[in-house]
Amino acid sequence: MVSRALWKGQIHFGDFDVPVKLHTAVREQRIQFHLLHSRDHVRLRQHMLCAYEKVPVPREEQVRGFEVGEGRYIIVDDDELERLEPEGNRTIEIHDFVRGGQIDPLYFDRVYYLAPDVMLRGYRALAEALGETGMEGICTWTMRKRSYLGSLAAKGKAMRLITLRHADEVIDAGSLDLPVTGLSDRELEAGVNLVTALSAPFQPEKFKNDHQKKLRELIDRKAAGEKISILRPRQRRATPPDRLLETLEASLKKAV
C-alpha cells in the first residue's frame, strides 16, 4: 500500500529544481498505557494548576512568560509568536553538500522518504548524482509553519530527507567530564580482538520486539485475575579495573 504524501515541495540548488513528495519512513506500533488514579482507576487528565492555590486555570487565563530573572517574566502572547512564523514557499533549499558519514548521528531527528512528484527524470538524476559523489545536501525548508534543517541523501535509487537537530540542541560530550584513563597496549589489543570476535553483520530483522508480546500476555493474565510473581532485576558486579585484562582474555577464550 502506498502511503499518502505528508507534504510536497521542490528541492532547489544551483539552477536545479526537483519536485518531491515526503512520506513517513517509520510507523511506530507500541502498547499505550494511560495514567490512572490509584484509588478508583479514573483516568487522569493533565491540567495547568496554579502553583500556589492548586486549582485548575482555564486555557483563556493562561499566559506565556519568559523568565528573565528569578520569578520575573516577559509576557509573550500567541499573536506575537505567530507573527514570527516563517511563510512557507515549498522549497527545500540546499546550502552545502558534505561528504556522507560526516554528520554525528546525535543530530539525526526524523527520517522521511522522498518520492518524485510530477516527473521522475530530475529525481533519478539527483539520486544518481548524490550516489556517484557520495555527498549529502544540507538544506532548510519550511513545513507547516516551522522551519527545518535537514540532510538529503540517496540510498540506491531513492532519496531521503533526515531532519537534523540544531547545534544548540545537542549536548556536548565534554559536559560529561569523562575521566582520562590509562590503558595498556595489551588491554587495548585484547579489547580489539574480543570485539572483532563478537562481530556480526547488522541484521535488523533478527531482533524482534518480543517484549511487547510478553507485556500483552502480562496484561491478559492480570485481566484474568491471575497474580503476577515479581522478579527482581539483578545488578551485575562491575569488572574490577585491575582484572580487566584477565577478564578480556577469558572472554576471548570463550568466544573463539
Binding site: L35, H37, V42, R45, Q46, M48, K54, E61, Q62, F66
Partner: peptide, 21 residues
C-alpha cells in the same frame, strides 16, 4: 523555555494530573 502563568496575578502554573471525579 516559556513558563505558563496565570493572567490574573502571574502566579506560575504547574502541569499536574487532575482527578475529575
Amino acid at each position: 523555555s516559556f513558563r505558563m502563568l496565570h493572567a490574573k496575578d502571574y502566579s506560575p502554573l504547574i502541569r499536574a494530573f487532575y482527578c475529575p471525579d
